[in-house]
Design a binder for these strands. Structure first.
Lengths: 338, 338
DNA sequence: TATAGTCTTGTTACCGGTAACGTGATCGGT
DNA sequence: ACCGATCACGTTACCGGTAACAAGACTATA
């Protein structure tokens, strides 16, 4: 049973002043005599006054709410970034409106519309479906926007990109420096920045090393939802190309599946074949054998905080479009690919 | 550059009708002649009208926003539940305001206050710090509330609890049925419902089996933030009580650490010692050896959806306080504890 | 044709705050 | 003692919708 809410008018009456005076006390605006302030404060205390943010939003045309749009919430990668952003925004008295797209472009658009209707002060978009300009138009409607690993038309948002070309070079060079010559790549069947770039980076890195890629024999993609056939797909890659002596996997979950499959097929890790994963370093460390992984240089929470920071900065000073940021990776070598 | 927002008045002028008529068209309320409706619809279309939800909230005293309060977002367990709730609420045109407490009771209280200020229609609280009535009071102020694995005074919220006593019985009985007699338990240093209940369930299950628990020699707790000393703590338990032939771990991450530690100490799994984890079944399956785990009977997304469903139900019919729900577990046997 | 009832639409006030401007009181300086 | 500046606070209008009631147009009925 929610109690009836106390309004500013109630407080004003009780303290014997005008609404505006109360408002000024609350917002520390203008000059107020010490005695009046105290009287208002007392009245607020006594009545248990809590300001109605809805009304404030309407009057000020600022919501102190930020929309965050992610493909999935149950994914630790996104979860950590969201958490970092939420932390930072909380400290600055902003709330977050969280929506997940499930990778569905139509839903993604619907979400952007709803966020507009909610008049959020800005949005942070993570790894959006990369098919185009719908997102760019949506972002252009926002007061401020930060896009992480999402291709948008220049100017509509501050962009944060991970340098996947370099990260993949790191991975490939490490493997080749340790004698691997026949590398395979396993990715997801999704249409995102990271998905494209890592795949592209793989090509480039091989090319740089003077190798030519025979994609059908070296690369496989699997559905994001694992099923009983997941290992079969990986197995097919391994058997159709028995020479493979290293597998680069789009993320740790795939790497784990690869590890299972290799065990099933009696390929010893790392003697017969090396396995290298991406991103989920905490889990990578828990595996047996522990997985060599490419991981962001800074914690994912910090990425979220950075995004939030850039957003608020742009919100504070509308002229300053903050510069785009490139994030780099490091290689954490463990026994799956020494 | 966000374009100037179109208001209902603009549409009304354009269509040559009153604001109320436009409002009625938008909300499908009252009778409107087909021609007028079409005229309004056309005007809305032409002007690109989008209703301002802030104003609507203020007028209707309903926000269509639900607060969700969790200890952590980067945790897959919570992430999946949030995702399920968000999915369900999205389908019913509700947005979620997400906050994480980091396990800090003070912050938890602050969050509840902010959510009140935001006039959310209801809140879902997950695994809140169990120390007491502050949360209960906060929930009592809400129009509707659902508490998951959180102790609150009866009536202030619809409660969802996991039956940890039974789940632990499942675990312990399985281990003993397979000849284990010296069980250990490793938990977290946190003050939550699940933390207490699993520990208590461990005691009870041993007692039921006719064993007496020697807590100092059988139980250990570790900080939630893993560090280099994590394995040391587990190692100390193992060496101080060499008889231990099974470890029950509060979650999969701890189980993984236990697995590492056992390997370091040359205890073979499962011959010398069995390891059993909780909850993160997806990860448990990826481990080597795969971990036996106690897992919820229904997917975690469904738990979130259930919570959201109960919340909306209560919101729709304020008299009906939905009944509390008890969730049960199943045992997924793998090779770490066959 | 008068009358009541139904449809459709307009009017007014209000949700709970804030912006912008107005006003009386106090104050220092000459 | 007069004047402008500053201080402390009040007034009015407005943010963009909706609730509640009023009112005109039209229909059916007697």
């Amino acid at each position: 049973m929610p109690k009836k809410h106390v309004t500013i008018s109630d407080v004003a009456d009780k303290a014997g002043v005008s609404k505006m005076t109360v408002s000024r006390v609350i917002n520390h605006k203008g000059e107020i005599s010490a005695t009046t302030r105290q009287r208002v404060l007392d009245a607020m205390q006594e009545l248990g006054f809590r300001p109605n943010r809805i009304a404030k939003r309407l009057a000020t045309n600022a919501t102190c709410q930020i929309g965050i749009v992610v493909p999935s919430i149950s994914n630790q990668y996104f979860g950590a970034i969201i958490e970092g952003a939420e932390q930072f925004l909380w400290e600055h008295d902003y709330q977050i409106l969280l929506c997940h797209t499930g990778g569905d472009p139509a839903r993604q658009q619907a979400i952007m519309r709803i966020l507009e209707d909610n008049r959020v002060d800005g949005v942070i978009v993570l790894s959006a479906h990369s098919s185009g300009e719908a997102m760019s138009r949506a972002l252009a409607n926002q007061r401020a926007a930060v896009a992480i690993n999402t291709n948008v038309t220049p100017g509509v948002a501050t962009c944060i990109f991970t340098d996947e070309i370099k990260s993949m070079a790191l991975a490939v060079h490490h493997l080749m420096a340790n004698g691997r010559r026949h590398l395979g790549y396993i990715g997801f069947e999704i249409d995102t920045y990271a998905s494209h770039e890592r795949r592209r980076g793989f090509d480039l890195a091989l090319h740089q090393a003077g190798l030519v890629l025979d994609a059908p024999k070296q690369c496989a993609t699997i559905p994001t939802q694992f099923g009983p056939d997941t290992n079969a797909i990986i197995g097919q890659l391994l058997t159709s190309n028995p020479k493979l002596d290293a597998l680069v996997c789009f993320n740790t979950a795939i790497a784990a599946k690869a590890l299972q499959t290799c065990t099933e097929l009696n390929r010893h890790i790392p003697n017969d074949i090396a396995i290298l994963g991406y991103d989920d370093d905490l889990i990578a460390e828990l595996m047996t054998p522990p997985l060599t992984a490419v991981e962001l240089e800074i914690p994912k929470q910090d990425v979220g905080a950075l995004a939030a920071h850039l957003l608020l900065q742009h919100l504070k000073d509308r002229n300053s479009q903050p510069e785009d940021v490139i994030l780099h990776h490091k290689l954490v070598v463990r026994s799956s690919a020494p």
